[in-house]
Nucleic acid binder design. Structure first.
Length: 467
RNA sequence: GACCCGUUCGUCUAAGGGUUAGGACACCGCCCUUUCACGGCGGUAAUACGGGUUCGAAUCCCGUACGGGUCGCCA
């Protein structure tokens, strides 16, 4: 991996709130922050924003951490690995927040209101100099003085001084987010554009703490195909579902990277390290994008095709196991090679190769119909039977190919004329993995078995063949 | 409703004053081929609308429409 040695000081973070699953939007935010840090040889940290004790759960923390690990987005500081700026759970940082609150109070910038504590917003215009969105200016005193009541459908007067601590002592996002970014030395904040409107508040807090804010880059949102915000129920929304469906981590990373960022070249398939090399803030788009599950699957398929067989074996094993196919069967590597080009996700694999391993097969009636209606079907099947039984036949791909060619020639037919009946008789349907390699894996005994079963079932003995 | 952000093929995007507006997914056709896939070749398909600035606008400016976001003692 090539790193730019210039700004070794880059520090980015992913700061999820553990109130549910790791979803595609959060994962993409994590990915961008990770890519940016890695590209610059900087530091990527993970901070858990669990100040909402009502909604935060241990399960959710586990799911988020597992998801990030699965995506190969490792963090240099954070849960499990620790670091100099810990703790990395906001629920454990209350003492730090108390200290900052005291500073605000001493400066007359915070006051109590019905048990809560509010930050006194200055009457001035804050300008976010966003790397993606450009300059965005807001006066909090003005903007915050009205609030829209959705139920009433109209605006009401509001207190522009926002709450930073609940009556129960719990601190609020804006406050802790700013303090932690400050305390943890974050240099670049990449987050969803839904935070753009919050940023002036954060700027006001940074100013109150006499601190230089980090650089902001608000990234466009991922929408579902119908154009609204992705919800957990949309296909492709939850990271653990990709894992279950048999996506490769790098395939998902690749697709997420392309949703909202462009390498500005025609190439689209990238390994994680190729993404690290190319990632830059300039390539981030300004407009929201719609999630396309089909393309995501295609990207994954490309990764699958380029995977060495050895790695594919490891990735596929759990999916084979689940389908009742022994992952340690010596025929698996070759079978996976046959399957590789015709699947998009790992979960597709058993469906493609089970015909090789299943002891009993079922015949697709339309395919059978097509084949047994041929005038010379009995002759073809007999030729196959003779060829397969021959002691001279070496049961290998080459041997089978030669034997089938010979059998075809023997009855004055082309090889092609023999292939489809053979395929249907042995594998049950007209389409599927390459026939000859499949036969080689199925083996002589099973092949002969299937052939005679086929004859018994579909080719009645007494017809006009001899008259 | 107010404020903010945005708008190039159906979708992801490239081009950022001069291109036959390029690539990819999907779709269609042809080729390869023992089938299906993979691969190759080709096709359909876009600058939201209206004004300006300019010799020239997808590109700069203004307006309109549409989409999204924010307006919590959620993050």
């Amino acid at each position: 991996m090539r790193h730019l040695h210039s700004d070794m000081t880059v520090r980015t973070r992913f700061a999820p709130s553990p109130t549910g699953f790791l979803h595609i939007g959060g994962a993409r935010t994590a990915l961008y922050n990770w890519l940016f840090a890695r590209h610059h040889g900087g530091t990527f940290l993970l901070r858990i924003e669990d100040t909402d004790t009502e909604r935060s759960t241990q399960d959710s923390i586990r799911i988020i951490l597992d998801g990030l690990r699965w995506l190969k987005l490792d963090w240099d500081e954070g849960p499990d690995v620790g670091g100099p700026c810990g703790p990395y759970f906001q629920s454990e940082r209350t003492a730090i927040y108390d200290r900052y609150l005291a500073r605000l109070e001493a400066a007359g910038l915070a006051y109590e209101d019905e048990g809560a504590i509010r930050f006194r917003v200055p009457d001035k215009t804050y300008t976010v100099n966003d790397i993606v969105c450009g300059e965005v200016s807001t006066n909090l005193k003005v903007a915050g003085s009205r609030r829209y009541d959705a139920e009433l459908g109209r605006e009401l007067d509001a207190n522009p001084d926002f709450v930073i601590r609940r009556p129960n002592g719990g601190y609020i996002f804006h406050f802790v987010n700013v303090i932690d970014d400050l305390e943890m030395g974050i240099t670049h904040v990449m987050r969803g554009e839904d935070h753009l409107s919050n940023t002036p508040k954060h700027l006001a807090l940074f100013e109150a703490f006499d601190a230089t804010p980090p650089q902001f880059a608000h990234i466009p949102l991922n929408l579902n195909p119908s154009g609204s915000k992705m919800s957990k129920r949309d296909q492709g929304a939850l990271i653990h579902e990709y894992q279950e469906a048999g996506f490769l981590p790098e395939g998902v990373d690749n697709y997420m990277a392309l949703l909202g960022w462009s390498p500005k070249e025609d190439k689209e398939i990238f390994s994680l390290s190729e993404l690290v090399e190319r990632f830059d803030l300039k390539g981030i788009n300004r407009s929201n994008s719609k999630f396309d599950y089909e393309k995501c699957r295609w990207v994954n398929a490309e990764h699958l095709r380029h995977l060495p067989t050895k790695s594919l074996e490891e990735f596929a094993a759990p999916f084979l196991d689940k389908a009742g196919i022994d992952p340690n069967d010596s025929r698996i590597p070759r079978a996976l090679e046959l399957a590789k080009d015709r699947v998009q996700v790992l979960a597709d694999i058993p469906g493609v190769i089970s015909v090789i391993f299943n002891s009993s097969i079922s015949w697709d009636s339309a395919s059978v119909e097509k084949v047994i209606s041929r005038a010379n079907i009995k002759e073809l099947i007999q030729a196959l039977h003779t060829a397969f039984e021959s002691d001279a036949l070496e049961w290998t791909e080459q041997g089978l190919h030669d034997a089938l060619s010979g059998a075809a020639t023997g009855i004055g037919a082309k090889l092609g004329a023999l292939m489809l009946p053979c395929r249907v008789a042995i594998m049950g349907q007209a389409t599927g993995v390459d026939l000859i390699p499949a036969l080689a894996l199925i083996g002589r005994d099973a092949t002969l078995h299937r052939l005679s079963d086929f004859v018994d079932q579909f080719l009645p003995k007494d017809d006009q063949q001899d008259s």
